[in-house]
């Protein structure tokens, strides 16, 4: 084990380097891991197949473990297209000159956050963030999430004039919306903030114990998820490729695929649509 001849080292390093064979022609995309991975893989494999056909190109989806990993892969040109949240999209596009938001779900024009609470708290639904959440345990979703972190933190600061760590007795980051739901449902955290679309879909599928967890507040709307594409894809994949991707996404009408997001349709989007997200993120200090 110890004394491998030098050539072994050289050959293994050389091979490692040579193993860099994913074809340059492959168009790769990713998505922020905001829900259970099994669901994401199923959903985005479907999108990969759809895009392969529509674009007549080799399209591949790669799953990642964190929001930042999705942003980095986009920035590093290891993926050319991504399904981002509001915040991750703003972060990613500011790092890649020329990149643009090309499509969003109809629902993403006005997206909502649900604050949810375990039944033991006795909290009821109100039309504002209830004062009584103070002192409870609280979980965000992912640190880089728009509906799991940015928007809830903004409203917590607005309501209490303090940082979340001062308002709640314990602040956690569950990782994604499905987990936030499960953690509040099981009482591990008393209160949580999550993506309304995930809640509605889980509710429809009968996956929520409504005796254990309920929605206590729905935030005002904000722009959220979007497909963002790098600025250099036309150069690398042929003139007009960006437009073809946009058209393919906007034309997507497979009800099953749309339902998996869940979105009713995709509509055009632009970078300017996400200006409100940028200013909130700046205010909170998540972006410089």
């Amino acid at each position: 084990m110890t004394f491998k001849p030098i050539r072994t080292l050289l050959s293994s390093v050389a091979l490692t380097l040579a193993f860099n064979t994913a074809s340059a022609e492959t168009f790769v995309f990713t998505a922020i891991p905001d829900e259970d991975e099994t669901k994401l893989v199923e959903r985005f494999e479907g999108i990969a197949n759809y895009l392969s056909e529509e674009l007549d190109a080799d399209v591949r989806y790669i799953p990642v473990k964190s929001y930042a990993a999705a942003v980095s892969a986009f920035r590093n040109n290891q993926v050319q297209l991504a399904w981002f949240g509001g915040l991750s999209g703003v972060q990613a596009r500011s790092l890649v000159p020329g990149s643009q938001a090309i499509a969003q779900g109809t629902e993403d024009q006005a997206f909502y956050v649900y604050f949810v609470a375990h039944s033991s708290t006795g909290l009821e639904r109100e039309d504002r963030l209830p004062e009584e959440v103070r002192g409870k345990t609280f979980t965000f979703g992912s640190k880089g999430s728009t509906s799991g972190r940015l928007i809830p933190e903004y409203h917590i600061r607005e309501t209490f004039g303090e940082a979340p760590e001062e308002v709640f007795s314990r602040v956690g980051y569950s990782g994604n919306h499905t987990r936030t739901l499960r953690l509040v449902e099981s009482g591990t955290y008393e209160v949580g903030a999550m993506n309304f679309a995930v809640w509605e879909k889980e509710l429809e599928d009968g996956n929520i114990d409504t005796d254990a967890v309920k929605v206590i507040w729905k935030t005002p709307g904000f722009p959220n998820y979007q497909w963002s594409i790098r600025g250099d894809v036309d150069e690398n994949y042929g003139e007009g490729f960006t437009d073809r991707v946009r058209e393919a996404l906007l034309a997507l009408d497979d009800p099953e695929l749309l339902e998996s997001f869940p979105r009713s349709a995709f509509i055009p989007a632009s970078n300017d649509d996400y200006e409100p997200i940028r200013s909130v993120a700046k205010e909170i200090g998540i972006i410089d």
């Binding site: 084990m1 491998k4 072994t8 050959s11 293994s12 091979l15 490692t16 193993f19 860099n20 064979t21 994913a22 340059a24 790769v28 790669i62 892969a73 920035r75 590093n76 040109n77 290891q78 993926v79």
Partner: peptide, 23 residues
């Protein structure tokens, strides 16, 4: 068996995604 493992292992690391050296 060690030489076989050591020589063979680099072939089973998977492709991953290409490195972009500018990064």
């Amino acid at each position: 068996l060690l030489p076989i493992y050591v020589l063979g292992a680099p072939f089973f690391l998977g492709d991953g995604l290409p490195i972009v050296w500018g990064n």
